[in-house]
Design a protein around this nucleic acid. Sequence first.
RNA 1: GGGCAGAUACCCAAGUGGCCAACGGGGGCGGACUGUAAAUCCGCUGACUUACGUCUUCGAUGGUUCGAAUCCAUCUCUGCCCA
Length: 392
Amino acid sequence: MPAPSPEESLALLQKGAAALVSKEDLLAKLRLGRPLRVKLGVDPTSPDLHLGHSLALAKLRQFQDLGHTAVLIIGGFTSLIGDPSGRSSTRPPLTREQIEANAETYRAQAFRVLDPARVEVVNNADWLGRLTFEDVIRLNSRVTLQQMLAREDFRARVDAGQPVRLHELQYPVMQAWDSVMVRADVELGGSDQLFNCLVGRDLQAAEGQPPQVVLTLPILEGLDGVKKMSKSLDNYIGLSEAPGEMFGKAMSVSDDLMARWWPLLFHEEILPGAHPMEAKKTLGERLVARFHSPADAQAAREEWDRRFSRRDLESSDLPEISLADADTVGAVVAAFAAGFGVTKSRGDARRLIEGGSVQWRGEKVADPKAALHFAGGGVLRLDKRHAVRVKA
RNA sequence: GGGCAGAUACCCAAGUGGCCAACGGGGGCGGACUGUAAAUCCGCUGACUUACGUCUUCGAUGGUUCGAAUCCAUCUCUGCCCA
């Protein structure tokens, strides 16, 4: 493949971007003819990277494919504070152990998207943790309170009478310092990172470095179609989720949300005239193909059709467990535990049963006290998404 | 440092001595309908219990009372105004 011209690269890199500061700067940097250092910071605040992160990761991959270097910053230090972006309240701090563990899983997940050959993975605890108080004061002198209050989420919390802690104001400064330390040519991030990334430009300039180009990507809405996709809201599709889970979650989103996701995920318009359900299946398939493999995608779709369209639980791929005869409540609790590692209270189980969700061998069992006999085996349906095959 | 207001379940919020495991809304879960969509309708939404009921819960601790989310004291935290 012939190396694309700077102009061609620019056109490609602009696709799907929410903001680019600035186009001219990026073009100028592309014309330097050397690999650019493209920074993306992620805070290991949870064990999972999700589809929301994948937009920036995919853009980073695009840079890599054009010959540039990905600088993936694991926010070992920043996550001790937590970016207040998009949050209406203070984030609870994580322990160092949690962060370490999460950082480890992040690498693995990020490499589902990134090219391992052109990436530097660094941890900002390595430099932020060494700053002296004097250093910190010096950095802070570069930023004004007014600038901070220009950030909408801070402003909103102040206006709403909610606390904003001073340490939260440090977050943009730390992120900016990262840019200086890795000598970033470009920084990627979600739209809500725009402010932080721009502080990076200021700080780099103050340190005598050419300011980075900032390229932001749209924020992906979560499964609920209302809030930003995030682990803490439990409205996400994890990059390392099993194909079936991924496909199923994709199928559960509203048609409207799917239509909004489509261009963000695929950089193309949704097929006009396609039945929404078909389109959604295609979406699910493409996601599974992207993060697992085309074969997994096809299998996930077939399994889904079998299980949910044709409601053929009997031939579906279910966890196989052994269960002792028990009353229905006890059996449901045991099946959740053995089949899915999920702890259900007996109250929860009873509610499911009384709600008519539980079926044994295709027959609804609505009486929590009914005794179930598992000799001979069969399928025990627990709720929409959970069913187990009981061994004979 | 001073004054005022506030802290209720996942979120918002009602409740100012017993009828409170705590109104209502949101969210979530389940059912009907369906395309694991939307809309609509119904049920559930602290734990244990077949049930009667028992236990834990209304910022924390201690108290008053036969009885407290509700009253008193102290403490912790938050917002606003003043300095």
